[in-house]
């Protein structure tokens, strides 16, 4: 889960490393994801989200498709 200067850098890294490109998305999506995922981490009532809850968070951040399925 890394940051790249641009999508071209992702492609170049993939060619060099031999690791296929997974999902490329914006910092806006990442920020939405992080806010929903971590907002309650310091709460005594925090627990790991269920699979359905996790899928809902991904979807609300605009991250959909089989890549984001925990049961794929």
């Amino acid at each position: 889960m890394r940051l790249f200067r641009s999508e071209e850098h992702v492609m170049r890294w993939s060619e060099k490393s031999g690791i296929p490109v997974g999902e490329v998305f914006s910092l806006d999506s990442l920020w939405r994801l992080a806010q929903m995922w971590f907002h309650d981490r310091l709460s005594p009532s925090w627990r790991r989200p269920t699979m359905d809850e996790a899928h809902a968070v991904f979807a609300q951040a605009g991250l959909t498709g089989s890549f984001w399925r925990l049961d794929a």
Partner: peptide, 14 residues
């Protein structure tokens, strides 16, 4: 400070 920066996840969630 890098306006074109993007996030890459290599590994699928599963």
């Amino acid at each position: 400070d890098v306006p074109g920066a993007v996030v890459h996840f290599a590994v699928p969630a599963a």
